[in-house]
Amino acid sequence: MTTNERESLVTELTKSAIPGWAILVVRLNRVVAERLGVAETDVQCLHVLDRHGPATPGTLAKHVKLTTGSASRMIDRLVAAGCVRRVADPGDRRRVLIEPTQEGIDRVGEAYAGLVARTRDDLAGFGDDELATVLRFLRTAELSTAAEVERLQAAPGRT
């Protein structure tokens, strides 16, 4: 591959394919939130709980970048929707942990089942080395995206 061909591919990825996909993921999460009867940030909270396990309200607030008051309202919505419950922290009974309910796990799983199935079908055509490359890219992109979120949030004013 020539330098120009490579640059063309990188440009297509960064200016078209990835932003287009990211916008669709945001739209999908909005639809999922509507189906669950919660806000989009609430869906992010459910992903955090799925990925990291039960957490304190303060920890959840940090993960989804909410104030503690907004996180409390988020948790109230998720409890009302049957997606999470408050439980005593077994390590410190004075603290409360938020954990997903089986109903919440099932509902989220059902909401994303179509995408999971489609993605598995899409990936079936990839070889082992290609899958490893896709995974490496996504993990790297996740770290870069998190770093950019932090940079923008720390920067004064508008960009």
Rank of each mutant, 00 (worst) to 15 (best):
Thr3Trp: 08
Asn4Met: 12
Asn4Ala: 15
Glu5Trp: 05
Glu5Cys: 03
Ser8Cys: 08
Ser8Trp: 14
Leu9His: 14
Leu9Gln: 12
Val10Phe: 13
Glu12Arg: 14
Glu12Ser: 12
Thr14Tyr: 08
Thr14Phe: 09
Ser16Glu: 12
Ser16Asn: 12
Pro19Gly: 03
Pro19Val: 01
Trp21Leu: 00
Ile23Phe: 13
Val26Tyr: 09
Val26Asp: 10
Val26Arg: 08
Asn29Trp: 04
Asn29Ser: 11
Glu34Thr: 11
Glu34Asn: 14
Leu36Val: 02
Asp42Gly: 15
Val43Gly: 05
Cys45Leu: 13
Leu46Cys: 02
Asp50Trp: 04
Gly53Arg: 13
Thr56Arg: 12
Pro57Lys: 11
Ala61Ser: 10
Val64Cys: 04
Leu66Phe: 10
Leu66Cys: 02
Ala71Ser: 15
Ser72Thr: 15
Arg73Pro: 01
Met74Ile: 01
Arg77Asn: 14
Ala80Leu: 07
Ala81Asn: 03
Asp89Glu: 09
Pro90Ile: 03
Arg93Val: 15
Arg94Cys: 00
Arg94Val: 03
Arg95Tyr: 02
Glu99Ala: 14
Glu99Met: 01
Gly104Thr: 03
Arg107Met: 01
Val108Ile: 11
Val108Arg: 07
Ala113Asn: 08
Leu115Glu: 06
Thr119His: 07
Arg120Pro: 01
Asp121Lys: 08
Asp122His: 04
Phe126Val: 09
Gly127Trp: 00
Asp129Gln: 08
Glu130Ser: 06
Leu131Thr: 04
Ala132Cys: 07
Leu135Cys: 08
Arg139Gln: 13
Thr140Lys: 09
Ala141Arg: 09
Ser144Pro: 01
Ser144Gln: 08
Thr145Glu: 13
Ala147Thr: 07
Ala147Leu: 11
Glu148Met: 11
Val149Trp: 12
Glu150Phe: 14
Gln153Thr: 10
Gln153Met: 10
Ala154Cys: 00
Ala154His: 10
Gly157Ser: 04
